[in-house]
Computed example of a mutant assay.
Amino acid sequence: MKRLYPMMAILLVGLFIYSGEQKAEGSESMNQPPRDTDGAKSWEQDPLVLEVVLQRSYMDGVVTEERMEETIWAMEDFWATYDGWEVINQSDNQIIFGKEMNELSPVIKKNGYFGVNDEGELTIFDGIPENQKAIQSFFYIDTDKLESRKSEELQKGIKINSKDQYLSLIKEYEQYSISNQ
Rank of each mutant, 00 (worst) to 15 (best):
K2T: 08
K2H: 10
M7R: 13
I10D: 13
L11V: 12
L11F: 02
G14L: 00
L15W: 00
L15K: 14
L15P: 02
S19Q: 12
G20Q: 11
E21L: 14
E25H: 06
G26Y: 03
S29P: 03
N31F: 11
R35N: 02
G39S: 05
E44T: 00
Q45P: 04
D46Q: 12
L48K: 14
V49F: 01
V49L: 07
L50A: 00
L50H: 01
V52W: 01
V53T: 13
L54R: 08
Q55L: 10
R56E: 13
S57R: 10
S57A: 11
Y58A: 01
D60P: 00
G61P: 09
V62T: 12
V63K: 02
E69A: 04
E69I: 14
T71R: 15
I72H: 09
M75Q: 12
D77I: 12
F78V: 03
W79I: 15
A80F: 06
W85H: 11
V87S: 10
V87G: 10
V87Y: 15
N89D: 14
Q90S: 14
Q90N: 12
S91A: 05
N93V: 11
N93C: 00
F97Q: 05
F97Y: 12
K99N: 10
M101K: 09
M101I: 15
L104T: 01
V107G: 06
V107T: 11
V107F: 07
K110I: 05
K110N: 13
G112W: 06
G112R: 08
Y113E: 01
Y113W: 09
V116I: 15
D118N: 10
D118L: 15
D118F: 03
I124N: 06
I124S: 02
F125H: 02
F125L: 07
D126F: 02
G127F: 10
I128A: 12
E130K: 15
N131E: 15
N131I: 07
A134W: 10
Q136A: 03
S137V: 00
S137Q: 07
F138L: 01
F139D: 07
I141H: 03
D142Q: 12
D142A: 14
D142F: 00
T143I: 12
D144V: 08
L146F: 06
L146H: 04
S148V: 13
R149M: 04
K150T: 10
S151E: 11
E153F: 09
L154F: 06
L154C: 00
G157C: 09
N161D: 07
S162V: 07
S162F: 04
L167Y: 00
S168F: 06
S168R: 11
I170M: 10
Y173T: 04
E174A: 05
Q175W: 03
S177V: 02
I178M: 14
I178V: 15
I178F: 15
S179D: 11
N180C: 01
